[in-house]
Write a protein that binds this DNA or RNA. Structure first.
Lengths: 111, 111
DNA sequence: TTCTCATACCTCGCCCTGCGAGGTATAGTC
DNA sequence: GACTATACCTCGCAGGGCGAGGTATGAGAA
């Protein structure tokens, strides 16, 4: 099956994860913090969303991971693959399309 | 249970339906057409989304309906209730918050 | 007549995904 | 020894989006 697109339902987690991890390598806990900070609290993925999403994306070949030991703790760093970057581009376009659509409806004045 | 808010997952259908029906009375088929037109094809709710959504919103007291006979065909006109309008305001605010959040992340350049 | 198309409504059931709740382990601090 | 912060994980529910399929009418074509 050839890469399901989210239809209307946003798939926001996938989008923002790919975006962050296309820029630089990050690990789970870090991502959660960055997300809250960057989005001014508006987007906070709980761990029940975050970790399963990371696993799923990796399984689909959109991310790759490598564990690292830092001060006795294990961190798992994720990074977007080329395939992940391509998908990011598509998802971003989709997001804009649908976001613009919503905005046009919200802003529509009846004549 | 006191009116669940959609957390991250957008709940776009609810939002746009309330918005349209806060402006003027419309019936299902009409809504579908308006949505496609206004959003430039970006937002097309299939009937499997549309009708169940309308029923659910009415059951929650956010819409009210009245059937009308037009040229031998039955149309069911929906309109947002005051309660629906209040909810629309809240959902709109939520949408903007989360939409801005996503935009900030998409537009973020790493330093 | 019959067929097909546009209008207009509806429901069933799948499936995915978001999410809360809960669980484990280490390092450092009080 | 207790508590907080870091860091990972899973289970299972709930809800909602969506395709597919179903009914009926009116208008126009074949």
């Amino acid at each position: 099956m050839p890469e399901r697109e989210p239809t209307l339902m946003s798939g926001v987690p996938e989008l923002v994860l790919l975006r962050l991890l296309a820029q630089r390598e990050m690990y789970g806990y870090d991502i959660a913090r960055a997300l809250k900070l960057l989005s001014d609290e508006a987007l906070s993925l709980g761990e029940g969303v975050l970790y399963p999403a990371l696993h799923a994306l990796e399984a689909r070949g959109l991310l790759r991971s490598r564990p690292r030991q830092v001060e006795g703790r294990t961190r798992i760093y994720y990074q977007a693959t080329p395939k992940g970057c391509r998908r990011l581009a598509r998802l971003t376009a989709n997001w804009r399309r649908m976001s613009d659509g919503v905005e046009r409806i919200l802003g529509a004045h009846h004549d």
